[in-house]
Amino acid sequence: MAIPIRVKVNGQVEALEVAPDESLLSMLRERLDLTGAKEGCNEGECGACVVLLDGKAVNACLVLAAEADGHEVTTIEGLGRPGALHPLQKAFLAHQAVQCGFCTPGMIMTALSLLLENPAPTEEEVRTAISGNLCRCTGYRQILDAVQAAAQEMRAGAQGRRP
């Protein structure tokens, strides 16, 4: 039994027929070829699959594709592209917050969700926000630095002045 859904993904409306047990992650990766969100565990424990659902970070592996009907999804691909990166992506690049990079898209989307809600988080708040995103390569410090740098840049951008 296929369920027809309409979902806005990175600004584009997609009309799809999804299976009742299909996850949002699987829909993005297998149907839409958006492989930026990663499959690290498929059970909500690693954060590699985090995307924004109506601006809030969710583990896409725990959300059913059908639940996204009528909603808006943003993935890492919708954030920026090489040459036109989002401040968070730039900061991850500049602060060497990327090693194998498998955790990176989920990390960035989680951080984005935090910064949308709280543009000036404390170090502790960033730590807590990304505590559901596992990284096995870094010691997280470079990631925390990157998020703070991006927050600053985004605040400056919001106030219309260059940092």
């Binding site: 090489p82 990327v98 990176t104």
Partner: peptide, 23 residues
């Protein structure tokens, strides 16, 4: 020096294809 990794730009953009991404 502190240089940017050559693979990082694609990685932060979610464009890198890992073994689990390939079809």
């Amino acid at each position: 020096a502190r240089v940017k990794r050559i693979d990082a730009e694609d990685k932060v953009a979610g464009r890198t294809l890992y073994p689990s991404d390939k079809t």
